[in-house]
Design a protein around this nucleic acid. Structure first.
Lengths: 144, 144
DNA sequence: ATAGTATATGCAATTAAATTGCATTAAAAA
DNA sequence: TTTTTAATGCAATTTAATTGCATATACTAT
């Protein structure tokens, strides 16, 4: 787990240390679950311009600092990458769980199993997402 | 495989037989790969209003006639469901392959393997998507 | 410290995706 | 054929994402 502080992460990736970039990393690191672009914008919209937020998120994804998970609705969600991720390849191939009640995405420990890809197809990344009810929503509320 | 004709599919699902609904089914059934909402709109936009298209796609998904696959960019793609799908539950749990070159999504035969879900989490659907280069793009073009 | 340079940010405007309300039209049932 | 029910098209709105450009800021080298 990349538990270094934001300033270190920025320096290691040759990115300028700006208030906005630090805030984005802080906010995303604060939650164990992935956070959606709209939620990030709600939290940071008063201190960071929305365009800047988009650009920071894209930069972080390119550098392998964050990984992006697309949820059931097609919305982008972000979480801190494991340290194995690099600018050239993401190695966050674990199970994601997308709660259809609270819409949170959890990064779970379960590894993506080996998948048999047909001849002629070359897979670079595998995404495995389970949709359902998370532990909190399952307890708190019987609706779904 | 649901290879019945559009009119039968509509009747079986208590949906009115309209020109627009038939056209959407024809168009989606024509291609083995899933087709994106934007591509569908390009093909059908002159004969069907875009709002109607959205509504038809949603209805078909609810009824278990089509399944929706979200690609890497968060765009909705649609393919005909296997006949096992119902209004209450989709059973299209096979591997999808999203070509990052031509952007097509292929429904492949490979079944989604059993996944170990942590206690407290209840999964209803599992999505397994591989991103990479499809057989056609691999042959036709060495760029990716 | 300071000046210079490279880069990041904010703003305005634009493009695109998706949704809502409502009047009109069309399909199926009586 | 008439009635009823549901689907469609249109206008308007909301939300997401992107682009160009002027300004501001961080880092580098002096």
């Amino acid at each position: 787990m990349q538990k270094r502080n934001p300033v270190d992460i920025l320096r290691e990736n040759q990115l300028k240390n700006t208030r906005q970039r630090v805030r984005v990393l802080e906010e995303i690191a604060a939650d164990k679950a992935a956070i959606s672009q709209p939620d990030l914008e709600k939290k940071l919209g008063k201190e960071i311009d929305r365009v800047t937020l988009y650009r920071i998120l894209n930069t972080y994804e390119d550098k392998g600092i964050l990984h992006r998970i697309i949820d059931f609705n097609g919305t982008a969600n972000y979480a801190i990458c494991s340290s194995a991720c690099t600018a050239h390849h993401h190695h966050d191939e674990h199970l994601h769980f997308n709660c259809t009640h609270c819409h949170k995405i959890y990064c779970l420990e379960t590894k993506v199993p080996a998948i048999n890809i047909p001849d002629g197809f070359t897979a670079n990344t595998i995404s495995l997402i389970a949709y359902g009810i998370c532990d909190k929503c399952g307890k708190a509320d019987k609706r779904n």
